[in-house]
Design a binder for these strands. Sequence first.
DNA 1: AAAATCATCAACCGCGATCGC
DNA 2: TGCGATCGCGGTTGATGATTT
Length: 269
Amino acid sequence: MVRAPCCEKMGLKKGPWAPEEDQILTSYIQKHGHGNWRALPKQSGLLRCGKSCRLRWINYLRPDIKRGNFTIEEEETIIKLHDMLGNRWSAIAAKLPGRTDNEIKNVWHTHLKKKLLKTNPTKPVAKRVSKPKMKRSDSNSSTITQSEPASLVNFPEMETTSTCTTTSSDFSSVTVGESKNIKSEDIESLETMPEIDESFWSEAAAMDETTTMPSKSLTMSNEIQLQYPFNYEESFQHCHGNNSNFDDGMDFWYDIFIRTVDPIELPEF
DNA sequence: AAAATCATCAACCGCGATCGC
DNA sequence: TGCGATCGCGGTTGATGATTT
């Protein structure tokens, strides 16, 4: 599929927005709503592409935008959420009313990353938990489809956990209750998401000495998930063959771990 | 005082997901 | 069901102001 490059048409303006443009966009949206962003510039008379209009509205003109410096509480929330979610700025922004993903991203890169490095230079700052990418074609199926491995996972503690015990030879089909598949809302449900901090991982590693993976089908509640700090790579290799790697295993278990809303069922193995 | 470097942040870009015909 | 259009996200860029040399 060939995509028409955004803003490439002659006459479309780029760069900083003039106050008059802001005025036009604001009054148009207040009157008509934004509807189709692509059509908005034509209808409002702006010489901008829809994408640019959308960004300007979302990041700057929206009436509920909170301006000014971030409070200590907001910064702490960002740090906490980033620790849990990684660079999922929109998910983090959803928990900070009036703040945009762009703003949070900027604050993270300019202030918080440095702040964290100062206060705790040994802790990995760029910890990223990738959101599993689901193939659209599988959205109604009951199986988890893994489209690509996590690109960066930095949990050194996990690599040292002892192995789990499974008797599985086929883990390719995991039933996920009613929700059928991972939904972004599930991942966004931070109210039910356990906080994963360093103490969790060290506790998990300690517990792992005595726990093994259940060998029969089970319902995996939030608590149970927390009790099974698997060796991601080995467990995944066990299920998918020895050619799979740590990232595959991490992503696979992330799929399972992230289901925090409804209990899920694992197949017999 | 001027040049160089750094910090900030608004805006852009590309891509995957989703919508809707 | 396929495909083009559109949306939304995250990474990156570049303009600008502040600070340092």
